[in-house]
Simulated assay, not measured.
Amino acid sequence: MYFLSKELYFPPVSEASYEGILAVGGDLSPERLLLAYRNGIFPWFEEDEPILWWSPPHRMVVYPKDYKIAKSLRNILNRKIFEVTYNQNFTEVITYCQTIKRKGQKGTWITDSMYEAYVKLHHLGIVKSIEVWHENKLVGGLYGVDLGKVFCGESMFSLVPNASKVAFVSLIEILKQEDYLLLDCQVHNNHLEKLGAFEISRENYLKILKSSL
Rank of each mutant, 00 (worst) to 15 (best):
30 P>D: 00
67 Y>I: 11
107 G>L: 00
117 A>W: 02
80 K>W: 01
12 P>S: 14
12 P>L: 13
120 K>F: 06
118 Y>C: 09
82 F>G: 00
101 K>H: 13
22 L>V: 05
109 W>A: 05
92 E>S: 08
104 G>E: 13
85 T>M: 05
61 V>R: 08
45 F>V: 11
132 V>M: 02
71 K>V: 15
112 D>I: 05
125 G>V: 10
139 V>D: 06
26 G>C: 08
75 N>C: 10
80 K>D: 15
11 P>D: 05
130 I>E: 05
91 T>N: 12
134 H>G: 02
39 N>S: 12
118 Y>N: 06
21 I>L: 15
16 A>T: 00
63 Y>K: 08
85 T>G: 04
85 T>C: 03
21 I>A: 04
109 W>T: 14
118 Y>P: 14
78 N>A: 14
114 M>N: 05
109 W>Y: 08
89 N>Q: 11
145 V>Q: 10
54 W>K: 13
51 I>E: 08
133 W>S: 02
79 R>S: 09
93 V>Q: 05
59 R>I: 11
71 K>E: 15
24 V>W: 09
136 N>Q: 11
78 N>V: 01
119 V>Y: 14
134 H>L: 15
39 N>F: 06
116 E>M: 11
111 T>C: 04
84 V>D: 00
25 G>S: 05
59 R>K: 14
25 G>I: 09
29 S>A: 06
74 R>W: 04
133 W>R: 06
81 I>G: 00
11 P>A: 11
73 L>E: 04
126 I>L: 15
95 T>Y: 07
61 V>N: 08
69 I>E: 14
122 H>Y: 13
65 K>H: 11
91 T>M: 15
76 I>C: 08
42 F>S: 07
59 R>W: 09
127 V>Q: 03
139 V>E: 11
60 M>T: 13
77 L>R: 07
139 V>K: 01
65 K>V: 12
23 A>G: 10
31 E>N: 07
69 I>H: 04
62 V>P: 07
40 G>F: 03
139 V>L: 09
48 D>E: 15
120 K>L: 12
130 I>P: 02
35 L>K: 12
78 N>Q: 12
85 T>F: 02
44 W>E: 00
119 V>N: 15
35 L>S: 08
132 V>N: 03
71 K>L: 13
40 G>M: 03
83 E>C: 03
102 R>H: 07
139 V>C: 02
29 S>E: 08
39 N>L: 04
135 E>C: 07
126 I>D: 00
79 R>D: 09
17 S>R: 13
83 E>Y: 04
34 L>R: 14
96 Y>P: 00
18 Y>P: 00
35 L>P: 15
106 K>I: 02
12 P>I: 06
77 L>S: 05
105 Q>R: 10
141 G>F: 07
48 D>Y: 11
10 F>Q: 06
114 M>H: 08
48 D>K: 12
24 V>D: 02
28 L>D: 09
35 L>N: 06
105 Q>C: 05
26 G>V: 04
121 L>W: 04
104 G>H: 07
54 W>Y: 12
116 E>A: 13
107 G>D: 10
130 I>W: 04
63 Y>Q: 04
20 G>C: 03
60 M>L: 15
85 T>Y: 01
97 C>R: 01
67 Y>Q: 11
23 A>P: 12
33 L>G: 02
46 E>V: 13
22 L>Q: 06
10 F>K: 06
85 T>P: 01
122 H>V: 00
99 T>E: 09
30 P>H: 01
